[in-house]
Write a protein that binds this DNA or RNA. Structure first.
Lengths: 245, 245
DNA sequence: TAGTGGTCTAGACCACGCC
DNA sequence: GCGTGGTCTAGACCACTAG
């Protein structure tokens, strides 16, 4: 049992360096969502650490929602599942009172020069070609959400080639399957404005009606920005809940 | 050092029962924000626990933002300070580009029968008398926020007697000082709507302009609901940020 | 029954803040 | 120098899951 050595700055605590090491493995794709990682005892043996130190490292990653523990089974790379997270903001109820996954209709998908705010978020050059996509989300054939989505090249070049019928309402599984890009977390910025002429006609409301605007930047495990998205939805359907301490 | 015994359900882990016990002490007011709690070694001695078990208990309360640890100094009851937390949503910048604490002007303060949604949130009877307060918040003498605030009786009866000039822009310190009520956490619900005639005239905007509506229920350490508040502010000034994983 | 994470013990030594 | 929390060790035993 040749004790492997922790890499990284040895002035850092061992539990941090072990957490970094596991996080990096996941970022590199050596471990994928759903995979089981080595048991605490195995990790302790492998890195020549006390069990408590290993637990501390895993606790960090559980807290970051990168891993999840299942008592009696093992520790697993967590499935990030917030593609349909607009449900955190909007409730789309069907006739039966149940949540509906809005249908998706792609209006445009093409290469365009990235505007400044997008380029900056995605760390690409202003004016460099990027994939732009315009989607409409509908419930009962009624539009509820418009999305503008930007994806950087060459990371997502495969995305332009996919047939439209292969793209369902959930994009992040497509990014993973077709482009090998896993979205691990996101930052969202929220505001509200009057719909205005452009979006009121798309959303079939009055130009003066308020819409919620949600900007989202999605990141990979290694903090590379993968997607910029701006969604506009009817304020009427919007309700957000937050706990503060 | 006669070993005290942990109270509570002895089927629960000891670290949870210790955390409950400390939390209860704070809820009862035996420990107040800013107070230092016993050191880990003292707690371990007092309850006849291993140091690691005590650490685990404290970690829970640190995670709940009830305690905070300061290396080399001790562990303290945290000061909940989110009265001015509208800053998490709205940025009110002065001419110098710095954050401003909006001034506060009380429009009304009186006893009224509680409407249903308020009564439910505060766990009082519908129609029972409660304190209602209407405030306007201003920056550079321009209105930016209107608030409707409800407080339950008899808990807050002293609040009606306070002179208006003693009530500053921050209410929670007043609740503590004058009524002995400490706000420990809150739940917020956010939506947007057109201002409408009533609020557009107060906020000096067009009735069609969008406003953000934030409902907040504030709770004590023992989860008793202390305050119901609805704030309306200019959507233009609003920007909210959230990280999701 | 074997293997996993969850709880708990009983320490040692280090790093920090303060006097 | 002293008391605090932070890191780390080296285990034991319990509770849960699965074959």
């Amino acid at each position: 049992m040749q004790g492997s050595v922790l890499s990284g700055d040895d002035r850092l605590p061992k539990y941090m360096r072990l957490a970094d090491s596991i996080r990096t493995e996941i970022a590199l794709g050596k471990r994928r969502p759903g995979d089981q990682i080595a048991s605490e005892a195995e990790l302790a043996m492998h890195y020549d650490l006390a069990p408590g130190t290993v637990r501390q490292a895993i606790a960090i990653l559980v807290d970051e929602r990168i891993l999840e523990r299942q008592h009696g089974k093992g520790t697993f790379v967590r499935h990030p599942r917030f593609d349909s997270s607009m449900f955190r903001f909007f409730r789309f109820l069907g006739a039966d009172g149940l949540d509906l996954e809005p249908e998706s209709r792609i209006l445009r998908r093409l290469l365009l020069p990235a505007p400044e705010h997008v380029a900056q978020a995605l760390s690409i050059d202003v004016g460099a070609d990027a994939i732009f996509m315009n989607r409409l989300r509908l419930v009962d054939s009624k539009p509820v959400l418009v999305e503008e989505i930007w994806l950087p090249l060459p990371r997502f070049s495969a995305f332009l080639e996919i047939e439209e019928r292969e793209i369902g309402p959930l994009l992040y599984p497509v990014y993973d399957r077709e482009c090998g890009q896993i979205v691990a977390r996101a930052e969202e910025y929220l505001t509200a404005e009057a719909a205005g002429v452009e979006f009121s006609s798309i959303l079939q409301i009055e130009p003066s009606e308020p819409v919620i605007v949600i900007d989202r930047i999605a990141y990979a495990y290694d903090d590379v920005a993968l997607e910029w998205r701006r969604s506009r939805g009817l304020a009427k359907e919007f309700n957000y809940h937050a706990s503060i301490r």
